[in-house]
């Protein structure tokens, strides 16, 4: 009985989503080319690649829609993506969202890890960081920062360190698409690129008044 109700509810939810998506698909240009391109892309990789490598080519719903709309989905779809991504966010077991800014500072600078392949893969166990400086200005003393993302210098100084700001910062790093569908920023928590604990350290680096992001 309960199971039937649950099924009905799921079916209804599915139906509610469908009209919007079906409409979007119809409006998307080059659908036949997209199908051909997917086939060409998939067949461009070695058959003896380990399976887990090949899963990196898979797209979840957000990736698929962002690709299709070149990171600029129509407003309704944008809202749908953000809502669905918000629901993916998980928190540290002990519930502490702000950790040690010194650990966060280290993680923000590390750009290695996660490279696969036959030519130049990362050695096993290579440290995987947040690589925040690739795209963001953070502590004043680090001048080798990228500009793909906005400057986050004085992040906490400007916003304070209320529970609300701490949660927003954690959530944004865990799943950036929950706030801005198809943003350039990776979804660090969703992909388990960073652990919830590591994310809490980066939160501290951004928010803690003692962190060089805010102090200098």
């Amino acid at each position: 009985m309960t199971r039937t109700i649950a099924r009905l509810a799921l079916a209804a939810a599915g139906l509610a989503l469908l009209p919007g998506l079906a409409q979007a698909q119809k409006n998307a240009p080059h659908n036949d080319i997209a199908a051909q391109a997917e086939q060409v892309f998939r067949s461009s990789f070695r058959a003896d690649n380990p399976k887990y490598w090949m899963t990196r080519l898979d797209q979840d719903e957000a990736m698929r829609l962002c690709s299709q709309y070149r990171d600029n989905p129509p407003p309704k779809m944008r809202a749908q993506i953000e809502k669905a991504q918000m629901a993916t966010i998980r928190y540290p077991v002990e519930g502490k969202l702000i950790g040690d800014w010194k650990e966060g500072e280290k993680l923000a600078a590390v750009g290695t890890g996660g490279h696969i392949g036959f030519i130049q893969p990362d050695p096993p166990g290579r440290l995987r960081g947040g690589n925040c400086y690739a795209c963001h200005q953070l502590a004043k003393k680090e001048v080798a920062y990228g500009t793909i993302g906005p400057s986050l210098q004085h992040f906490g100084k400007l916003r304070g360190n209320s529970d609300e700001i701490i949660k927003y910062t954690y959530d944004k790093i865990y799943n950036s698409n929950a706030f801005s569908a198809c943003t350039n920023m990776p979804r660090f928590g969703l992909h388990s690129w960073l652990t919830p604990e590591q994310i809490s350290h980066i939160v501290a680096f951004l928010v803690d008044p003692e962190s060089p992001v805010n102090k200098d």
């Binding site: 080319i33 892309f41 080519l57 690709s67 996660g114 350039n184 990776p186």
Partner: peptide, 21 residues
């Protein structure tokens, strides 16, 4: 057109596409 599709195609543990950078 296939190349253009791949240029904007996002996937992987960092959600990258060529267009991101």
């Amino acid at each position: 057109k296939i190349g253009e599709h791949i240029f904007y195609r996002r996937s992987g543990p960092q959600d990258f596409s060529c267009a991101i950078c």
